[in-house]
Simulated scan of single mutants.
Amino acid sequence: MTHNPKHTVEIDECSDNNRPSKISKIEYPNPSYHDGEQEEEEEQKEGMNQHRRIQRYLVAIEYIGTHFSGSQKQLTDRTVVGVLEEAFCKFVGQPVSVICSSRTDAGVHALSNVCHVDIERISKRKPGEVLPPHEPVVVRRAVNHFLQKQNGDLMVIDVRCVPSDFHARYKAQERTYFYRLLSGSEPLSTLEKDRAWHVPEELNLPAMQEACRVLVGHHDFSSFRAAGCQAKSPIRTLDELSVVEVIQSPYFPSVMDRERQIKVADDLHGCGSNAEAVIPVSSSARIDKVRASNEGVGFGKRRYHRCLVVTARARAFLYHQVRLLVGVLKAVGTGNLTIPDGS
Rank of each mutant, 00 (worst) to 15 (best):
I61F: 00
D288F: 12
S273W: 09
Q261M: 10
F224A: 03
C100W: 06
V137P: 01
P187R: 10
V80W: 07
H145V: 04
A196E: 05
D220S: 05
K289A: 09
S15N: 11
S183I: 08
Y179L: 04
S112L: 01
A226M: 05
K90C: 04
M1S: 12
K330Q: 11
T79Q: 08
Y28D: 03
K193W: 04
C229R: 05
L203E: 01
I11W: 13
I64N: 11
R169W: 05
R313M: 00
D118N: 14
V243R: 01
A265S: 15
P163N: 07
C89G: 02
F299I: 14
V326P: 02
R125F: 08
H34A: 01
N4C: 14
S283Y: 11
P234G: 12
H167G: 11
E40T: 10
G128K: 05
G272D: 15
L58S: 02
R260K: 13
E62R: 08
S189R: 09
G217V: 07
H3D: 15
C89Y: 03
I122A: 03
E43W: 04
E192L: 14
E210P: 13
K126A: 10
V246S: 01
T338Y: 05
H134W: 15
P340N: 13
Q38E: 11
K45E: 08
V216Y: 12
A265D: 03
G217E: 12
D153G: 08
N30F: 01
P20I: 15
E295L: 15
L329P: 11
I61Q: 00
A211Y: 00
Q74F: 09
P253Y: 09
N113C: 03
V108H: 06
P163K: 07
V297D: 12
I247V: 12
V59C: 07
D118I: 13
V246W: 00
S32Y: 01
V108E: 10
D35W: 03
L238M: 08
T66D: 01
Q173S: 11
S249Y: 10
N294V: 14
K73N: 10
S164R: 13
A231W: 06
R125T: 13
P340F: 05
C115S: 11
G107I: 09
M155K: 15
K6M: 13
A196Q: 03
C229H: 06
A226W: 03
G65N: 00
P133Y: 03
G47A: 03
S222T: 12
A316D: 13
V114Y: 00
C100E: 02
S102A: 15
V332L: 07
I247E: 07
I122G: 01
S97G: 04
Q261C: 11
A106R: 15
E86L: 09
V214M: 11
P234A: 08
D77Y: 05
H67P: 03
T338D: 15
Q44A: 05
V244N: 01
R52Y: 08
Q261D: 06
V162Q: 06
G217N: 06
V114I: 15
Q209W: 03
P132S: 13
A211S: 02
